[in-house]
Amino acid sequence: MTGKPRVVLVDDHSMFRAGVRAELGDSVEVVGEAASVSEAIAVIRHRAPDVVLLDVHMPDGGGQAVLAGIGGGLPDTRFLALSVSDAAEDVIGVIRAGARGYVTKTISAAELAEAIGRVADGDVVFSPRLAGFVLDAFRDAPVVPSVDPELDQLTPRELEVLRLLARGYAYKEIAAELFISIKTVETHASNVLRKLQLSNRHQLSRWAADRRMV
């Protein structure tokens, strides 16, 4: 990634868009904004940005609808989900729809800029909360026989990385802790994300609903 990432902001609150734009300042180049799903699809198609900051909740469908609308049309555009909601089904839903990371709106400006940069470089962004959700979803539940069992389990190393992410460690700190390179940490994280997106273990789709009933 050379130069500043080109970013499109999608959020139905103009005040929030203005705030993010001001906070990010010079660290990114904001090439477009959208306040609704249809507007977002049009702007993203037109500008083909590096990164889309995507609100999970919008009146006419939200982040998942935008991801569905774009489909596989723009392989070089990456999506970073941004939400005030902590609801597990929202988070897992938007990741499974294709977002490359999830952060909450209370994130600091510096952290957000870093997250955008990382997504633009093709890496994934795990907030501690997202890591916690994934750990919960892949937790000790029995695995049903499936086409690709590899997708339905996390390796011990991936679990270690996820635990450290959930504890609030940065990639650099994880690398130091596990005596591996930052690049390896990134690989583990993106493998976890891929499994989260592709795994067909039924817990993932039903998990969010189930755990609310416990």
């Binding site: 209370t106 501690p128 909360r129 890591a131 916690g132 750990l135 919960d136 937790r139 959930a166 504890r167 609030g168 416990v214």
Partner: peptide, 10 residues
Amino acid sequence: VTIDVVLVGD
């Protein structure tokens, strides 16, 4: 202060 609470299991 802000406390980021992440809980797995109960």
